[in-house]
Design a protein around this nucleic acid. Sequence first.
RNA 1: GGACCGUUAGCGUAGCCUGGUUUAACGCGUCUCCCUGUCACGGAGAAGAUCGCGGGUUCGAAUCCCGCACGGUCCGCCA
Length: 467
Amino acid sequence: MIEKRILSKEVSLRIGQKVKLAGWVDVRRDHGKIIFIDLRDKEGLTQLVFLPENKELYEKATSLRPEWVVLVEGEVKARPKGMINPKIATGEIEIAVENLEILSEAKTPPFDINTDGSQISEDKRLKFRYLDLRRERLKNNLILRDKVIQFMRQWLGKEDFIEIETPILTKSTPEGARDYIVPSRLEPGKFYALPQSPQQYKQLLMVAGFEKYFQIARCFRDEDTRGDRQPEFTQLDLETSFMSQEEILDLIERLYADIVKNISPDKKFTQTPFPRISYKEAMEKYGTDKPDLRKDKNDPNELAFCFIVDFPMFEWREEEKRWDAVHHPFTRPQSEDIEEIKECPEKIMGFQYDFVCNGYEIGGGSLRTYRPEILEAVFEVMGHKKEQIREKFGHLLEAFSYGVPPHGGIAPGIDRFVMILAGEPNIREVIAFPKTGDGRDLMMIAPSEVDEKQLKELHLKILSNEK
RNA sequence: GGACCGUUAGCGUAGCCUGGUUUAACGCGUCUCCCUGUCACGGAGAAGAUCGCGGGUUCGAAUCCCGCACGGUCCGCCA
């Protein structure tokens, strides 16, 4: 009796031994008097051979179809001369099967799994995402994503950062993107919001004295999607105390250079150190604040990182007739002259930076204002009344009155970066269960209606379901 | 909120512009039979489509027109 199931990648070292393998039928090649099955597990393929000597076993093998799940026992044999397949890792061996157990049958899949999936329509791929994820391409993308995240955690740990979780149920904020909101059961008529980013929490962690925080953070924004944008996404959220803008940029540069060198050694950098380009220069020279600096845009292995710095603090919103923050209101102005901030907002630069790779914005951050009087001046420029500021951000201002270190951070998006590393054209390809363009999950069929009882508990009434 | 592209057997496409010799074609897959060395096995045959949904024009609509749904790309939006 063979105790332990082994994986495809271990088989080659066990010629002559009896082994137990389990996995999915990848391909069946039935020659009438000999049947080959490619067995697929999470690490690769192994060829199984069935011969008609054992009639009962052979009959059973005849019934096998793609995507059935089976458990087999048999002897690992070196393949006969001339029968070696150099295209697969286990091409020099095969399993002479002695015992076959069918663990699970499978319907014919709705689409071919042995392709990269790029020909299949998106709605079918999303509806049958668990089958789509069986593809080599998607599997590899998720493995790459895992490697990137593991590397970040390890690397930042060595740099004395600690990972801290912040709430998913939080408070709606007036600035920025539209919030996803969650009704409160215990407080009728009140709502939580899902975080657009852990922005305020990480600043409060700096007040708390942690100095170096990071989090692999899920963020939510109820805005329309794009090829590089999903309603929920993951960012490396990071905040530090007492560090300068250049120290933060240098940290990120070292982290990303190390990620690429260790995880995608085939990639090469267009330029190191990553250039720091002012917003003004980027707009004048490239006409965009996320320039694609690659020398050969057809080279899949070229990575052109850069930082865009010195953004203007404010931009004029003509339709609303008011100044708005280019980045967000907590960005520290490069001027500490309160009169100047109020009088000439158009002249004020912010300690704000974007992280750009191959024409994609893959992150943004800033040094934060930690002097309450400057934060109030910024809000004033944006047309906020003192009472509104107290109401919306009073907790932050109060926290800043108890000893706040100068602090700043950055939040590089993980999905977009992995998409670039994987050479994928769309962010969906690096997210296990992405949503459609209008924010729906075609597999789970979400959003969906809820029971009358649930609505009642939440003190909600649906007035109209018209769009 | 807006613009554009797409929707034809299980999957991917052709046919649409120029309506009628189309009994809607092709490749893959599925099913049956044959096949002892394949590795995207091969060979023979079969089944499988109210042409996304609704309405209109017409003697006649997959084909032309309108509306809707679904999917995608982009603009707005995304502190």
